[in-house]
Amino acid sequence: MGELDLSKTEIGPFSWSYSERDTILYALGVGCHREEQRYVFEGHSDFAALPTLAVIPPYHDVLASVPLQDVLPKYNPAMLLHGEQYLEMKAPLKASGRLLTSARVLEVQDKGKAAVVVIHTTSKCADSGEVVAENEITSFMRGAGGFGQQRRAQRQPAAVAPNKPPQRKPDAVVEERTSEDQAALYRLSGDYNPLHIDPEFAGIAGFDRPILHGLCTFGIAAKHVLKAFAQGDPEALKSIKARFAKHVFPGETLRTEMWQDSPTKVIFQTRVVERDELALTFAAVELATPAGQAKSRL
């Protein structure tokens, strides 16, 4: 079995300019309410971006331009499933600005009938060149395996940690009902997959109605962890990783169950209350400061 040359998959940078309006739109998309003025009112003295806004730049031309056909002979974008997401913040995300995002295929695994691909993206501040955030996006490609080659990479330990919840009651629980219009609102931040808005397309994919974006659930869960362990301080999030285990329908209730694993690590899982199914698993947040020592509130 050979090893793939992934150097030709490197692309970018792609420019993405975002305004205070985009920052507010994202916050509303992950369920922030008018009371959470810091994230929904540009006139607030501590107006800020939720750190998980940093998952959005790759959806502005970047991911669609990664030449997956160069490493997967049977690549079919319709057969792609978003499996896991890892986000690491390298610097605070400004409430508005311009980011330059580059991408490369980091890892490819041949699973026989399917393939697993990890895409790494780096977003830098266009003005200073400072790295703001890095994403690792793991996708499961149905029907794309059997090519006989693969490439493993040395990944960040937090990106591959199993994050098994302890055998005790959660240290904190936050519950939030999503809106029937949650997906319709979230998609305006950049992920326009019709699976999340078109009933006919959702039916073809095997769902009786459109489903919520996994990254919307991801953002909601991050907000819950920051609320419970960091007084809502957006700069407290160092990294977050989760596996997308089950779909969520807009209007369902999400319950994030959290365990403090160390002073700076919180293991969590997010459950769909109505169906008692886990939507996010193998999940954790690394905090920049020990839990309870953050400086701000929602």
Rank of each mutant, 00 (worst) to 15 (best):
G148H: 02
P170E: 10
T178I: 05
A172M: 11
G146E: 15
D110Q: 05
V105W: 02
R155W: 08
N76G: 13
E130I: 13
P165I: 12
A144C: 15
H82F: 06
P170F: 08
V108Q: 04
E134M: 03
S179Y: 05
L100P: 00
E176K: 15
H120F: 13
Y75A: 05
M79D: 10
V117M: 06
G83W: 02
V116M: 14
A172P: 06
N76Y: 10
G83S: 07
G146R: 08
T122Y: 10
A91T: 06
G83N: 01
V173R: 06
D61N: 09
Q109S: 14
Q167K: 14
L188P: 09
R155Q: 10
A103C: 07
V116Y: 13
A114C: 12
I119L: 05
V132R: 08
D171T: 11
E176N: 04
P57Q: 04
G143D: 05
S96C: 06
P166G: 11
Q150A: 09
L72F: 01
E136V: 05
E130N: 07
P58S: 06
P77I: 02
D171G: 06
L185T: 14
S102D: 06
K169Y: 03
F147N: 03
R155L: 15
P92Q: 03
P73V: 08
A144D: 07
D110I: 02
P157K: 04
Q156C: 11
R177A: 14
G143Q: 01
E84W: 00
E136C: 12
L106S: 04
T122P: 04
V71Q: 10
G83A: 09
E84H: 04
H60L: 10
M79H: 09
R104D: 09
P92S: 03
L100C: 10
A126Y: 02
G83H: 01
A64Y: 12
V117T: 03
R187V: 05
D70P: 10
